[in-house]
Design a protein around this nucleic acid. Structure first.
Length: 288
DNA sequence: CTAGGATCCTGTCAGC
DNA sequence: TGCTGACAGGATCCTA
């Protein structure tokens, strides 16, 4: 799940747990999940935590950085005096660790950080700190939503004559950090149909969409992304963090709170897509 | 340059 | 109960 707000929430939470701590050992349980030499990381101290798009950057002493990308099902679980977990929400947040989804264990001595990832799409990559900007993934990223200039956003949308606007929103080169959840939520918030041709949006619509993207992500950040505290409710039962802010995502079958139409789920650009047919209308004709 | 599809991998759920 | 296929919140690689 981890999209920008989740990764940012992890960055903030993890900072309090691991900043200034020394890595005693790195245990790689799945080769595919760790790019680099584990022993190189040994003995280094965590000196900072940054984020770029959906990538978490853990800066270590002596010019080394761990780039963590959670992709679809990655999660980071810190187990020490306190427990902090974020990423793809499931029972690993609260259960015994390591488990069969554990791919990497970063050992801080008295505490451990577990990188779990069911589908093995995510990874931790070792990069010299001064070369992070040159990493192919980092270098290709578009601007952070809050830093994106509306006119640049509009110009980028204009380049896509036939692609649905939803597909363009998901493109990290276009704008960094949006995934399937926030793409649907942003489109709903600005009342734009996900299948509108990206190039057909007016400058005003583009501006509105960018504003909505920032708004829905701010709201999720406020709610604390998908972390242990909104996964386990006060009464001990399991909650769904989407309930805290989602208006359309996984809401198919329920009523739009703006116009009372039924929220629909379709497939756009190969992805499950949720929208309200009442307030996200597709204009008549072929030039949509 | 853009556009569309397959693909990496594991798990869950619906339907038979 | 057991099997099968569809699908899952990401990004890349390939082809056209």
């Amino acid at each position: 799940m981890p999209e920008l707000p989740e990764v940012e929430t992890i960055r903030r939470g993890l900072k309090d747990c691991i900043l200034n701590k020394k890595i005693v050992q790195v245990e790689v349980c799945c080769e595919k999940s760790f790019v680099g030499v584990p022993t190189e990381v040994k003995g280094r101290k965590v000196v900072g935590l940054r984020r770029r798009g959906k990538a978490l950057l853990i800066d270590l002493s002596d010019n080394l950085t761990l780039m963590v990308h959670l992709r679809m099902t990655g999660q980071l679980i810190y187990v020490g005096e306190e427990r902090f977990a974020g990423g793809h929400p499931n029972e690993s947040f609260v259960g015994e660790l390591p488990n069969r989804q554990t791919r990497v264990i970063i050992n801080f001595g008295e505490a451990k950080l577990f990188f779990n990832d069911q589908r093995k799409f995510g990874f931790i990559k070792v990069i010299p700190t001064d070369e992070v900007e040159e990493d192919a993934f980092i270098a290709s990223l578009g601007a952070e939503p809050w830093e994106m200039m509306p006119e640049d956003f509009y110009a980028k949308l204009q380049r896509h004559k036939t692609a649905p606007v939803k597909a363009v929103l998901l493109d990290q080169k276009m704008i960094a950090g949006l995934g399937n959840i926030y793409a649907d939520e942003a489109l709903y918030d600005s009342k734009i149909h996900p299948e509108r041709k990206a190039g057909s949006l007016s400058a005003t619509e583009a501006r509105s969409l960018l504003k909505s993207a920032c708004k829905v992500m701010d709201k999720s950040l406020e709610a604390g992304g998908s972390t242990i505290q909104n996964y386990v409710k006060a009464d001990g039962t399991r909650g769904n963090y989407l309930d805290l802010f989602a208006k359309v995502y996984h809401k198919d079958g329920s009523r739009c709170e703006r116009c009372d139409c039924e929220i629909l789920k379709t497939r756009v650009a190969g992805r499950g897509t949720h929208y309200c047919p009442g307030c996200q209308e597709l204009p008549e004709g072929s030039d949509d």
